[in-house]
Amino acid sequence: MNVELMIESLPALLSGLVVTFQLVAAALVVGFVIALPTALARISRLAILRGLALGYAFFFRGTPLLVQIFLIYYGFAQSEALRDSILWPILREPYWCALIAFSLNTGAYSAEVFRGGIQSVPHGQVEAARAIGMSPASVFRRIVWPQALRQALPAYGNEIILLVKASSLASTVTLMDITGVARTLAAETYMPIEMFTAAAAIYLALTYSMSWGIVLLERRLTPKESRV
């Protein structure tokens, strides 16, 4: 293994890390914004909301992310009407197409995770809070959500790590993320082992630090007296 070459390629790979990190961070934020209302819709009393949320999760959890990216990037671009619309400046860019696909995908999975967290809060607590006069909104904000988030964190952390790894698919739509840079360097240098080992090391560092962040957050959210 040519370690020198791996070190030489680090600056290029780290420029890929910036792209990967940006994409994942933005997709997590947008995904979260999608996931929370979707989770609430899934347990809503209104059948139409339940149906919509279920259909969304059904599609985005039931199809490969690569297919979703290709549909958004190559598929939409086939329509001339869309190319003439105001959406085209956004859908023209591979970055936005990847971000949309990642956000919708992680949103669908996270919604399920949050739904599980919300439903794990004993119903008696909600009834007690209502009985002392809390509005439904503050019941959710002060009673349900803090416990639901704590319950959902391990699974949500898992989803974040899966998203980091799935983001490597961005390289298929010309983005120069970590994988995109590594593939290009591997083709130029004929040293695929070195390049992909270096890329793997960067992904490991990224996922490791993210899972540490989740662990720290878990500790913070666990009440002191219940810590073992």
Partner: peptide, 8 residues
């Protein structure tokens, strides 16, 4: 070629 046709 697809992206050439879609004017990207």
């Amino acid at each position: 070629n697809l992206d050439l046709k879609s004017e990207r």
